[in-house]
Amino acid sequence: MHRFKQLEVWKKSRAFCKHIYKITILFPESEKFGLVNQLRRASVSVPSNIAEGASRKSNKDFARFLEIAIGSCYEMETQIILSNDLGFIDKKTCKLVLEDLETIIKMTSKFKSTLK
């Protein structure tokens, strides 16, 4: 078992989640049950799956949860791009958020590869 609170990828994904919450506060009220909900749920999913996977006894199980976290990252990537397309976030914010997300994807993928 791993101590998830000590994992840099968990810390970074948790901070990213907080950032998503701050960004989506500015979305239109009509998106409360649309993109806001989807983005927030996917952002919470990443550190949550890292934490849940860390509790597993085998590295194979942990790797499976990291794969789910990566899937949530790609889900968010699409939602962030759509948010920019719809004018809910500007180009600069979109670029910065996607760069942070790419870092999390790379960190998670690299960590996952060490579990084999």
Rank of each mutant, 00 (worst) to 15 (best):
M1A: 13
Q6Y: 13
Q6T: 15
E8V: 15
E8W: 08
W10I: 10
K12M: 09
S13F: 12
C17H: 02
C17W: 04
C17P: 00
H19D: 09
K22P: 01
T24Q: 11
T24I: 15
P28F: 04
P28S: 05
E29P: 05
S30D: 04
S30V: 06
K32D: 03
K32G: 03
F33K: 11
N37P: 00
Q38C: 10
Q38H: 13
R40Q: 14
R41K: 13
S43R: 12
V44M: 07
S45F: 03
V46C: 01
V46Y: 00
P47M: 09
P47Q: 06
N49G: 02
E52W: 02
E52L: 04
A54T: 01
A54R: 00
K57V: 15
S58F: 11
S58T: 15
N59P: 00
D61K: 06
R64H: 10
R64Q: 08
F65A: 07
F65W: 08
L66M: 12
I68N: 07
I68R: 09
I70R: 12
G71S: 12
G71T: 09
G71W: 09
S72Q: 07
S72V: 11
C73W: 14
M76K: 05
E77S: 07
E77N: 12
Q79A: 06
I80N: 01
I81R: 04
I81K: 04
I81N: 00
L82M: 03
S83W: 06
S83H: 09
N84A: 08
G87H: 12
F88N: 04
D90E: 02
D90F: 01
K91I: 05
K92D: 07
T93L: 09
C94V: 01
K95P: 01
V97E: 07
V97W: 06
L98K: 07
L98D: 00
E99M: 14
D100K: 15
L101N: 10
E102L: 14
T103I: 14
I104C: 03
I104G: 02
K106A: 10
K106V: 04
M107H: 12
M107S: 13
M107D: 12
K110D: 09
F111V: 02
F111H: 10
F111R: 06
K112H: 10
T114K: 11
L115P: 08
K116V: 13
K116F: 09
K116P: 04
